[in-house]
Write a protein that binds this DNA or RNA. Structure first.
Length: 266
DNA sequence: TAAGAGATTTAGTCGGGTAC
DNA sequence: GTACCCGACTAAATCTCTTA
C-alpha cells in the first residue's frame, strides 16, 4: 500500500532520472542496470549478507575483484548504518525510560517531551536555588558585612557588632577544600560564629560567618578565599588536561551542526 | 461497523560529504 | 583510506478518517 504522496514523489523521480522508479527490486532497479553496483542486488534484505541467488548472478569476469570489493564496502556500510540507527534508538529508549507516559509516543513526540521536561527542571532548579543556599554555578567568592543581631548568642560573647559573612562556591572535586579554607583564614585569627557547607550536583558552597574584629575585614577575608579559589581552579585545569583525557578527546570527532553552534551561544 | 483510502511512522538503503 | 554523519528515497506497517 502506497500513499498518494509517495506515488507523486515516485512520479517526479521517474521523470527526473528517466526510469529510475517503477520498483526497488533487482528486476527494475538502477542496480541491475549497472551490474552489481548496489546492495539491492547483492544483499539479502533481512540479514545484510550476500544472498546465494544474488551472489550467483554476479558476473565472474575481469574486474570481478573490484566488484567484490565494492560489495564488501556496501555491506559494511549498511551494517554501519544499522549500528548507527541502533545507537540512536537505544538512546531514545533510555530517554523514554526516564520519563513517564512516553510508551505510546513516537520519536518526535518523545524528543519534544524531553525538551519540555528539561526546561521544566531548569526553571525548577532556578526557583529552588533562589530560596535555598545551594552552590552557584560559577566559581566565586562573595563577602558581605552584616550587622549582628542583638539577640544573637554570639553578640555578647564576641562583643563585635558586625559579622563578616564569606561564601565560597566551586566544584567539589577538591577533597580537602574545607581544610584549605581553614588554612587560608588562619592568619586572620578569625572568631568564627557559624559555618555551613552545602553540596549539590558536584558543586560545593562553604559559608563562614566571623566577627569583624582584628585582622578580619571584608577585604582580607576576600583575599584569603580568592587564594583558595585560585588553587581549586589550577587543580581543576590540571585534571582537565591530563594526558588520558586529551587522548580520549582526540579520539572523538567533532561535528558542529547549525543547531549545535546556535545553541552553544546560549 | 467494516472496508478502503490517505496520512504517518519506521527501518533499510544509497550516495555524497567530511574529519581524521 | 576509513569511519561516520546526513539527506533523500522506498517499502512496509500502522494509524486515522470517511463512507456505504
Amino acid at each position: 500500500m502506497n500513499s498518494g504522496l509517495f506515488s507523486g514523489a515516485v512520479g517526479l523521480y521517474d521523470g527526473f532520472y528517466g526510469g529510475f522508479g517503477g520498483g526497488h527490486g533487482p528486476e527494475h532497479g538502477f542496480g541491475q542496470q549497472l551490474g552489481a553496483s548496489t546492495s539491492s542486488v547483492l544483499l539479502d534484505g533481512e540479514t545484510g549478507e550476500l544472498g546465494a541467488a544474488a551472489a550467483a548472478d554476479v558476473p565472474k569476469r575481469k574486474g570481478g575483484g573490484r566488484e567484490e570489493k565494492a560489495a564488501t564496502a556496501l555491506r559494511s556500510h549498511s551494517e554501519a548504518e544499522r549500528r548507527r540507527r541502533e545507537r540512536i534508538n537505544a538512546h531514545l529508549a533510555t530517554l523514554r525510560s526516564m520519563l513517564p507516559c512516553t510508551d505510546k509516543m513516537d520519536k518526535a513526540a518523545l524528543l519534544a517531551e524531553v525538551i519540555n521536561h528539561v526546561k521544566k527542571l531548569k526553571s525548577e532548579a532556578a526557583r529552588v536555588g533562589k530560596h535555598c543556599p545551594v552552590p552557584s554555578g560559577a566559581d566565586e567568592v562573595t563577602v558581605e558585612v552584616v550587622q549582628q543581631p542583638q539577640e544573637s548568642p554570639h553578640h555578647d560573647r564576641t562583643g563585635a557588632a558586625f559579622l563578616v559573612k564569606a561564601t565560597l562556591s566551586c566544584g567539589d572535586g577538591c577533597a580537602d577544600l574545607f581544610a584549605d579554607v581553614r588554612r587560608a583564614l588562619q592568619p586572620l585569627a578569625p572568631r568564627v560564629v557559624g559555618s555551613e557547607v552545602t553540596t549539590l550536583g558536584g558543586r560545593v558552597r562553604i559559608t563562614v560567618a566571623m566577627s569583624r574584629e582584628g585582622a578580619v575585614t571584608a577585604a582580607s577575608v576576600h583575599q584569603a578565599l580568592d587564594s583558595v579559589l585560585d588553587r581549586v581552579a589550577s587543580a581543576a585545569a590540571a585534571f582537565e588536561f591530563s594526558p588520558r583525557d586529551s587522548l580520549l578527546a582526540g579520539n572523538k570527532r567533532r561535528r558542529v551542526s547549525t543547531f549545535d553552534s546556535s545553541s552553544s551561544s546560549c
